[in-house]
Write a protein that binds this DNA or RNA. Structure first.
Lengths: 183, 183
DNA sequence: ACTTTACCAGACAGGTCTGTCTACGGTCTG
DNA sequence: CAGACCGTAGACAGACCTGTCTGGTAAAGT
């Protein structure tokens, strides 16, 4: 049920998908739906929480797989991973950014979930930069957050196939050239 | 009427605002509305077109004001301008990115308008880079496009007050340090 | 055997959505 | 003066929205 909702919410937008649609697609009775989720907003929140957890799993797997690589290489491959996801058919941008566009009220729980995800991402990147011996990991993380957001938008709206090269170029400039002794 | 719609669409999202709401706020009869715009989609398209034209006016004014400055300084101030707009109260991100989140169909005219805006922006930045003597203006423009998108998202969802410093740092890294002879 | 829990099917209420239509009032032009 | 045009006010259709409620089924725990 949550899976169905997630697919629809992501593919078409939260406001564009009604409860009727979700229960029809999930082959579930309406009463059952409202038994599990007292309101649609709750489901939206659950949708984003699930996205968050899926991303955390993906990143944990990635970090486990690339534990033996030099830290800078890990960062590059991390962004390669993002591009790879952004190139997959059906990619429609970052679910958190998209949800934020539909929820203007900062006090709404959905916005809280979005914020949590952003804090997590920034912290994680800062840790990677620290591991790479960056002199100012927080500042770097702020910049790489911009890069990530831009990447999500760019893969959705522009030529996703070209993004890999662009990101490599950007990372070389932001982190310094691969053999740059400065960073 | 278009002004009212623009304000509402931007502030609350396109799907969240109904025609009834617009005609009430604009103090206009329903028949009048449908006389000017055969469908709501037409109004949404007009909304984005108007945003596009407003941005072009802003940029034209900016370029006219900064014609005497060195090209690299123009670029920095251009991004300062974006940050300044992003810090204004009521800023809710880029209207084009937000609209894209609500319109999944690439064939929809709204998506065409979004694309036009992106092409315009990229071309303009490439021209600025060319003027600054950049060796690879297209590549630089692709990166600065990422920066712009990230900036719009960041000003909306993160601490907009911190963005100026972050962007200056990012531009130094992307364009090279101010006195870097390489660029 | 009894209760709790989970589920289904679907009617229903009350509201909002887009879009059409009627009926009426000005105002400008030929 | 007549007709074309532009606007208002608002009823209306038909679909869809969220959320509630009734009534019945089935399984699982105690």
């Amino acid at each position: 049920m949550l899976d169905t909702a997630s697919t629809l919410f992501y593919a078409e937008g939260v406001h564009a998908v009604g409860v009727d649609r979700i229960i029809a697609e999930a082959a579930v009775a309406k009463a059952t739906f409202y038994h599990h989720f007292p309101a649609k907003d709750t489901l939206v929140h659950a949708y984003l929480t699930e996205q968050f957890e899926a991303q955390r799993r993906t990143v944990a797997d990635f970090l486990a797989d690339s534990a033996s690589l030099p830290p800078r290489e890990v960062l590059v491959r991390f962004f390669d991973l993002i591009v790879e996801i952004g190139r997959r058919p059906g990619f429609r941008g970052c679910p958190f950014i998209n949800a934020a566009a539909e929820f203007p009220d900062v006090a709404h729980p959905v916005r809280g979930a979005i914020l949590e995800h952003r804090v997590w991402f920034r912290t994680m990147v800062a840790d990677l930069l620290t591991a790479a011996g960056d002199a100012r990991p927080r500042a770097g993380a702020d910049i790489l957050m911009l890069l990530r957001d831009g990447l999500a938008v760019g893969c959705y709206l522009d030529d996703a196939a070209a993004m890999r090269g662009i990101v490599h170029d950007a990372l070389d400039r932001i982190l310094g050239a691969p053999d740059d002794p400065k960073r």
